[in-house]
């Protein structure tokens, strides 16, 4: 095992794609349920390559997402850093979990992500008025198997390590 990473552009491209999905215009009734694509992809890469993707990646990614969403600078940086941190702590266990258990972990992680985002938004005074903001946790958990298989396929095909 040499230490020089391989296939890093692939990781970058998946993050870019996730960012585009994150700002894709959606009809009003779907808006609240939009999965947290960036968080999902981040969770996958942290679990798959914890020695490459971690806190620093999450921080930069979060700042990028803040700019895209027009959010308070630091909102997503904060939440994604926490998600990455938790994923770094959990990755050894999550790797051996079954699909359902993994989805449950994703549900919790994205839920935490949403709670932190909500907290920062409330500092600004634009918080959601209902608990609908937790819906992305559900949709993200449901989409986890798809994301997992797609990204795992990509990782194996391009031998990202």
């Amino acid at each position: 095992m040499d230490d020089s990473g391989y296939g890093y552009p692939v990781v970058l491209l998946t993050f870019l794609f996730a960012a585009v999905l994150a700002i894709l215009p959606l009809p009003q009734w779907l808006m609240w349920g939009r999965p947290e694509w960036v968080a999902l992809v981040l969770i996958y890469w942290v679990i798959a390559l914890p020695q490459r993707v971690g806190i620093a990646t999450a921080l930069l990614l979060g700042i990028g997402l803040d700019v895209l969403e027009g959010a308070v600078l630091g909102q997503n940086a904060f939440s994604l850093t926490v998600v990455a941190l938790l994923a770094l702590v959990l990755y050894q266990r999550v790797r051996v979990y079954g699909l359902a258990q993994q989805a449950a972990i994703v549900f919790v992680l994205v839920g935490i992500n949403q709670l932190i985002c909500q907290w920062v938004q409330n500092l600004q005074g634009v918080g959601a008025r209902s608990a609908l903001f937790l819906l992305p946790a559900v949709s993200s958990a449901l989409l986890w198997p798809v994301v997992l298989h797609l990204l795992r396929g990509l990782r194996r095909y391009y031998q990202v390590s």
């Binding site: 971690g54 806190i55 620093a56 999450a58 921080l59 700042i63 308070v72 600078l73 630091g74 909102q75 940086a77 904060f78 850093t81 941190l85 920062v120 500092l123 600004q124």
Partner: peptide, 19 residues
């Protein structure tokens, strides 16, 4: 260490932007 650094960056960003 890295975590502390990240926390500092985040807190600075949020305060600078909000206040």
């Amino acid at each position: 260490m890295r975590v502390l650094l990240a926390a500092a960056v985040v807190v600075t960003l949020i305060t600078a932007d909000l206040h």
